[in-house]
């Protein structure tokens, strides 16, 4: 190599010894270059290429068109046809993926709840599709894992259900929505009575309470003039048909008892609910917003994937 490099150079020298060779390029290399030029001409004739004013060269009709189905804001399906671009390509591929996904949605829709839950493969689809639907629609209130938030939204992963945890009840809740209500007792009861009731309610869940106050609270609970038992039942286990809470279990939704360390704090939390009542707890109706097969899938997701179903 050494002998040749001293020969054909341009004669220019940089940095003492850096020289430029004049070795000829192979002739075919030049032809390859011309070919790329020809290719680019063909390319811009076939595909969108040059901007002209507010328009552009559209390319050859049919070579680069993509058809896809788009959905408008109000849910109408519109057939679209446009030139190739990343967005239309994505839309077309999304259509294909939706068609593939539809087979599974249809299968879930056509299968009874219990049989979906038995089928490990269908449940795998419920897990993944349900997670997406849940994240898009339910997670803002119930949190991404369905764990809810005390004082705001019920935990869907535990085994306590205000309006019922069977497939049918969950489906009903999803479709029609729910509204939780409890009247305020601040005008009807004295502060002391409310304290007594709070002690009783806490005692039902096995919390350490002032037993004397709890006993008095028990009397108030059964008192027709106060009327707690009308909704919560004489055994305080609630009534799922009307959405009154089971007060005997260890799960709290509106009173943030778990966050309180001392007995006084817990009593305060329960008192807040009894005093002010509840007009929160609105679960919107999804019947019109989600498709029937989506609601069906979400029902199974809540019942079995989140795992609290009964």
């Amino acid at each position: 190599m050494g002998q040749q490099t001293t020969k054909n150079t341009t004669g220019h020298v940089w940095d003492d010894d850096l020289q430029e060779l004049t070795n000829p390029l192979p002739r075919w290399w030049l032809w390859t270059f011309y070919l790329t030029v020809i290719f680019s001409v063909i390319y811009w004739i076939m595909y969108p290429a040059w901007p002209i004013g507010k328009s552009y060269t559209k390319g050859v009709e049919g070579v680069n068109t993509i058809k896809y189905t788009a959905r408008t804001v109000d849910g109408k399906e519109v057939q679209k046809e446009t030139h190739w671009n990343m967005r239309s390509k994505l839309m077309a591929e999304t259509n294909e993926a939706e068609a593939r996904q539809k087979q599974w949605f249809d299968k879930v829709a056509a299968t009874p709840y219990e049989d979906v839950a038995k089928d490990a493969e269908l449940m795998q689809f419920v897990n993944s599709a349900g997670k997406t639907l849940f994240s898009d629609n339910c997670a803002p209130c119930h949190m991404s894992g369905g764990q809810g938030k005390v004082t705001f939204s019920p935990n869907l992963t535990d085994d306590s259900w205000i309006f019922g945890g069977t497939y049918e009840k969950i489906h009903q809740t999803l479709t029609g929505g729910r509204t939780g209500f409890m009247p305020p007792f601040k005008d009807m009861l004295k502060e002391e009575q409310i304290t007594q009731l709070a002690n009783y309610v806490l005692s039902l869940s096995g919390e350490k309470v002032d037993t004397a106050a709890a006993a008095a609270g028990a009397e108030l609970f059964k008192n027709p003039g106060v009327g707690c038992f009308v909704c919560h039942g004489p055994d305080a286990k609630g009534n799922q048909d009307m959405g009154s809470a089971n007060l005997t279990d260890k799960i709290w939704l509106w009173a943030n008892v778990p966050a309180q360390q001392d007995a006084a704090g817990k009593v305060e939390e329960v008192k807040k609910v009894i005093t002010g009542g509840l007009s929160r707890g609105v679960m919107p109706a999804w019947g019109g917003r989600l498709k029937p097969e989506q609601i069906k899938l979400l029902t199974v997701y809540v019942h079995d994937s989140l795992g609290g179903g009964k």
């Binding site: 991404s144 764990q147 992963t157 535990d158 085994d159 260890k250 799960i251």
Partner: peptide, 20 residues
């Protein structure tokens, strides 16, 4: 282990952990 939520307290006070 499913970490959302880390654990679930059930009605009778027992504790549930979920896994995939």
């Amino acid at each position: 282990k499913i970490r959302q939520p880390l654990f679930v307290k059930l009605a009778d006070g027992s504790v549930r952990n979920r896994y995939q």
